[in-house]
């Protein structure tokens, strides 16, 4: 079991939900990312999800696309980010998941990358462009490593859910709505139906993400599943601040508010 699994067990005991902030590693630079992870843990983040900057993030809206482009301007690479996680592991055991596009994994080498994750302390992977049909080709490699493959399900996955969540660990990324990542003012998803559909096929914790951006939404959704991911709203705040110290404090303050809204 990874740090993610252990964290959910602790949260369950404390009758708490997980707050999972998301932002891009290397935005604006790798040192800021290192500090931000530590500050967000203090602010109440239960798991940190780091986006790996990619030139062509298909599943992402404009806010995340711009953040990835900012990070890539500094020539940030997957090796740099793994090294940073390795440094973080000397000072924190906060669970860390990567969100990355499959080509990044493929070019690094699937086996080599999973070994790198284990060695550096990355607990889980969200690969938005690797649906289960394609994931099946790598089942054996994934099974050999203690890294959670976090599958995505959407409100329109329907009968696909059973196959998607089979053998899952870490958590299930439950996409709130269709489309790409990005701030949304409202959701028209029937969360009661969607979340119970997922629960019918797995005991793996369910975490809602995509478009969750305000304390009010976090508060409204706390009854569904085992946690929420807040991404674009954080990335947007990061974009607005030019000073890294001010930015880190601003995001930490926001995460404290989100965590309070979840309690």
């Amino acid at each position: 079991m990874t740090r993610i699994g252990r964290r959910f067990a602790e949260l369950k005991e404390r009758k708490e939900k997980a707050l999972v902030p998301f932002f891009f590693a290397g935005d604006p630079d790798i040192d800021a990312t290192y500090e931000l992870v530590l500050e967000l843990e203090k602010a109440g983040a239960d798991i940190v999800e780091l986006g790996i900057p990619y030139t062509d993030p298909l599943a992402d809206g404009p806010v995340n696309q711009a953040a990835a482009a900012r990070a890539l301007k500094n020539d940030i690479t997957l090796t740099d980010i793994l090294d940073m996680v390795k440094r973080l592991r000397k000072v924190t055991q906060v669970p860390i998941a990567f969100l990355l596009y499959f080509n990044c994994v493929l070019q690094y080498g699937v086996e080599r990358f999973l070994q790198g994750c284990e060695k550096c302390g990355v607990d889980g992977l969200v690969i938005p462009d690797l649906p289960y049909e394609e994931r099946l080709r790598y089942t054996e490699i994934f099974a050999r490593h203690d890294v959670d493959m976090i599958p995505l399900v959407t409100p329109v996955s329907g009968e696909r859910i059973e196959k998607i969540v089979a053998g899952s660990s870490g958590f299930i990324y439950c996409v709130t709505s269709t489309g790409t990542t990005g701030v949304r003012s409202d959701f028209d998803t029937d969360f009661d139906r969607f979340m119970s559909e997922v629960a019918a096929h797995t005991d793996t914790p369910r975490v809602l993400g995509f478009g969750i951006s305000t304390t009010a939404q976090v508060s409204k959704l706390k009854g569904y599943g085992e946690g929420v991911i807040v991404g674009s709203a954080i990335v947007k705040r990061m974009e607005a601040q030019t000073d890294a110290i001010v930015m880190i404090e601003d995001v930490a303050q926001f995460v404290r508010q989100l965590k309070a809204a979840q309690r």
Binding site: E133, T154, R160
Partner: peptide, 11 residues
């Protein structure tokens, strides 16, 4: 080939 797309589009 294959179908490397977000889950939202698989249906």
């Amino acid at each position: 080939g294959g179908m490397f797309v977000p889950e939202t589009l698989m249906g």
